[in-house]
Design a protein around this nucleic acid. Structure first.
Length: 570
RNA sequence: GGGCGCGUAGCUCAGUCGGUAGAGCAGCUGGCUUUUAACCAGCUGGUCGUAGGUUCGAGUCCUACCGCGCUCACCA
């Protein structure tokens, strides 16, 4: 495990290193020892002569060639998205020796850093500033004949570039090959326009990759929600704020790791393919293993494997697990979703409460700089500690009866038009959800659930009707679920057998004997906590729907033929 | 699965009472060195989601289907 985590860390470091190396890449750098060029940041080297065609004779010929191309259909087999005009421009470039998809990038620096540095710069006006190299996607060019303005976006931000004929005599004829959406590198000087806008005045321009598909309409952007999700690779740069949400999501997840590792937790990875599904109540996806000749379930929760590791003595473990549930899709549900689950030996659900509120407060501060969040139009404060409300007291307050007063609860359910499916505890919980969840705006811990609806939790020694369990709510949405884990193997086996006997399609068909046997070896008193990462990200980024915090939310496949129900056999 | 809504040019959308399809943006041509959705002039671009039906005539009315969104139910 330790070596695994170490390897992960090394990968992280090397990717940062890669980012720094960009500035020594470029056409013409033949030396394999690229790294030696690193660090001369004060005086970035100019680019080598971009293309042979820059020597002149280009304008008229290339324009004629381009016009000729227009008469033909698509020059190559591409999808309907590729614009003939753009394909023709690439062809024209190639015929003059220029490469629309050069092999090397340029040595760029993040735009955000440039903006931050310019924040303290001199007053507006033509200014000779620092030389910078930036790279990104060029959008919305505005052509004035001898001057072109266009925004350039990279991962960190957006800045305007100014392209002037007199400053770019060699490149200028190639401007006709440039389209909105192209990826370009700019070597230029930081300055301002007459209107005072920060601008990088280009000294050199290089096309880094041609964009054959046109970017979305410049004012409305990607207005079609479906297109935003299906083509997230466009949405990320075409829709304001989208990039930021996913950068924050990444920071939230790494913040979780840091927080837990600082407390001595070990990150582990447990199977996604389960022979028996468990750890939650949900319909699973089924898949098939050819060599073993048996079916597997995609996990609905990592819980039972993580608790096996507590039996194994790892004591504090967590997993950032992708779970799969074969159920409906909504603003809060995706068929695959991410969950943080953690287990701590010698802890109980009270310790889990403290851990949860401290972690969430910390994450809010890390990504937003404040514990205040606005979610679905309401403001919440994620400052710890969160409120605690007892399930039983909430129930009594809202319904005027005890949760285990069966006749009174049945009558109440009937009054609320809640259908009685025969299972009293399910009915009671339906009454609770109908009458109490709307009060759980939060952030709030709802604590001490009736033991009958907590198959994996320990009962409370003071009141055996209750389980040591809490759920964390915000805006009526469940964010987390935790309990003092049941570690009595006989009791666990009994509850499993009850589940199997229920014939519920959401219950496994067989008892997970191996898990019971793990408990027979002895599991210490343990607290366990699960937090829905997608939902937490929704709250911390102010997004109303889960789809807006998933890079690629589940969508019905396009095209007439529905995917085959059977797995391919190879 | 139920209810409501939408589908017209590459994009965003108009399209009246059923009478041969419109705008802006994008693209192309020309002009323009300080724009912020730049602007000006010209040009190109559509099997109106699909299939039937009613009609002399359907983008428009009817039916079915496909796709998407919202919403309800189940779930975290």
């Amino acid at each position: 495990m330790a070596s695994c985590a170490h390897a992960k860390e090394q990968r992280g470091i090397s990717s940062v290193g890669r980012a720094r190396q960009w500035h020594c890449r470029g056409q013409g750098f033949e030396s394999p020892i690229l790294h030696q060029h690193r660090g001369r940041s004060g005086n970035l080297p100019g680019w080598p002569r971009a293309v042979p065609s820059a020597r002149g004779s280009l304008p008229d010929e290339s324009a004629g060639l381009y016009r000729a191309r227009r008469r033909y259909p698509r020059p190559s087999p591409m999808t309907e998205l590729a614009q003939p005009d753009r394909l023709a421009k690439a062809t024209a470039m190639r015929q003059t020796g220029a490469d629309p998809f050069p092999a090397r990038g340029v040595a760029s620096q993040p735009i955000a850093g440039l903006i931050a540095a310019a924040g303290t710069a001199a007053a507006p006006g033509p200014a000779i500033g620092t030389r910078v190299t930036i790279a990104g996607r060029m959008l919305m060019p505005r052509d004035f004949g001898k001057l072109i303005f266009a925004p350039l976006v990279d991962r960190t931000g957006r800045v305007q570039v100014g392209l002037q004929r007199d400053a770019l005599p060699e490149w200028w004829p190639q401007r006709k090959w440039l389209d909105a959406g192209d990826l370009v590198g700019i070597l230029g000087e930081v300055g301002f326009t007459q209107k005072g806008e920060l601008t990088v005045w280009a000294k050199e321009v290089r096309l880094l990759a041609k964009s054959y598909a046109p970017p979305p309409e410049k004012w409305h952007g990607l207005a079609d929600v479906e297109q935003r999700y299906r083509r997230r690779y466009v949405d990320l740069w075409a829709t304001e704020g989208v990039m930021d949400v996913f950068v924050k999501r990444s920071k939230i997840v790494s913040g979780m790791r840091r927080f837990l590792e600082a407390q001595g937790y070990l990150e582990v990875e447990t199977p996604t393919l389960h022979p028996i599904f468990g750890g939650a109540t949900a319909r699973p996806f089924v898949t098939h293993h050819n060599a073993l000749g048996c079916d597997f379930y995609l996990r609905i929760a990592p819980e039972l494997y993580l608790k096996r590791l507590i039996v194994g003595g790892l004591e504090r473990v967590f997993e950032i697990a992708r779970n799969f549930r074969n159920e409906g899709i909504s603003t809060r549900h995706n068929p695959e979703f991410s969950m943080l689950e953690l287990y701590e030996a010698q802890a109980d659900y009270r310790r889990m409460m403290e851990l949860a509120e401290q972690m969430i407060e910390r994450l809010a501060l890390e990504v937003n700089g404040t514990t205040k969040v606005t979610f679905r139009g309401r403001e919440y404060d994620l400052k710890a500690p969160f409120a605690r409300l007892r399930y039983s007291e909430l129930f009594r307050h809202q319904n005027g009866c005890e949760f285990d007063d069966q006749p009174a609860v049945r009558a109440r359910a009937a009054a609320l038009c809640i259908e009685d499916g025969g299972n009293y505890w399910k009915l009671m919980n339906d009454v609770f959800e109908a009458t109490c969840e709307k009060l759980l705006t939060g952030p709030v811990f709802c604590v001490d659930y009736p033991v009958q609806i907590c198959p994996l939790a320990k009962s409370n020694p003071q009141d055996p009707r209750l389980a040591e369990r809490f759920e964390l709510f915000l805006d009526g949405m469940e964010l987390g679920n935790a309990f003092s884990e049941l570690n009595d193997p006989a009791e666990q086996q009994r509850r499993f057998e009850e589940q199997v006997a229920s014939k519920d399609p959401e219950a496994p068909g067989v008892v997970d004997i191996d898990y019971v046997q793990a408990l027979e070896y002895g599991m210490p008193p343990t607290g366990g906590l699960g937090i829905g990462i997608d939902r937490l990200v929704m709250v911390l980024t102010g997004q109303d729907t889960i789809r807006d915090v998933l890079l690629f939310p589940a969508m019905r496949p396009l095209g007439g033929e529905p995917a085959s129900a059977t797995a391919p056999t190879h």
